[in-house]
Amino acid sequence: MSKLTIIKPKKVFSLDDLREVWQYKELLYFFTWRDLKVRYKQTSIGIMWAVFQPFVTMVIFSIFFGVLLKVPSNGVPYPIFVYTGLIFWQFFSAALTETSNVLITNQAIVTKVYFPRLILPFSSVMTKFVDFAISAVILVGMMFYYGYMPSLPGILVFPLLLIITFMASVGGGLILAAINVKYRDVRYILPFFIQILLFVTPVIYPASIAEKYSWVLALNPMTGVIQNARAALLGTTPINWLLVFISFTVCAIILAIGIVNFKKSERYFADTI
């Protein structure tokens, strides 16, 4: 016969939850589609916005940090150096912000309809991934312009770097989302926190600038991602597989903590929002 649902007070994370997310994959698609559609409908320059933002930031950073301050860039032209870092950074920070607010922005739905809540953070990261993909087109253009070709291991490591960024932003976002429901001021603290994080991540400067203390930077998983993205695409340094591995492990742990914690507090969302 038809499926049996049992509703009980205690609910902890189990593999069924992931299976359920899979069952609702169409909803995941619709939420992503909605967010993209609405955003690009509301702004007059539409889809160009995704390109405009990192591009302008890159130009300004290149002028101030590259030309005026002469920040070292591992021997590659500063614009392409900073742009590679920026698009990963913007993917991460936008996804993190969006994910941490996802329950509040969707509270009308969360309090009225049942669906696996995990869909929401996943869809917000997907939305930001689309932005990333669009802004990456510029990067490809710049690579042609400056004459860079990614190495074969570089192409192999690239998806891995995206997965790490994905895990870091979803994991961190999930933890923040659960806190955000309880303490509403978190969302005002977050932008400040992200701004600080930008400066301790080698986006506008190479990790080598910290010399013997560069291991401190490595504690931040985005360091591994950005450093290796440059290595992969621009050949600044050899790919640091150890760093990729460490970042991957750290992010996987963050993601796991995020999901379990989100699941644990999920049942209170509808009551507290």
Binding site: M1, S2, I7, P9, V110, Y114, R267
Partner: peptide
Amino acid sequence: SQITPPTTGEIRIQGS
């Protein structure tokens, strides 16, 4: 509708 969980008890539902 599974929007909020019960504090006690159990519900069994056959079907969607």
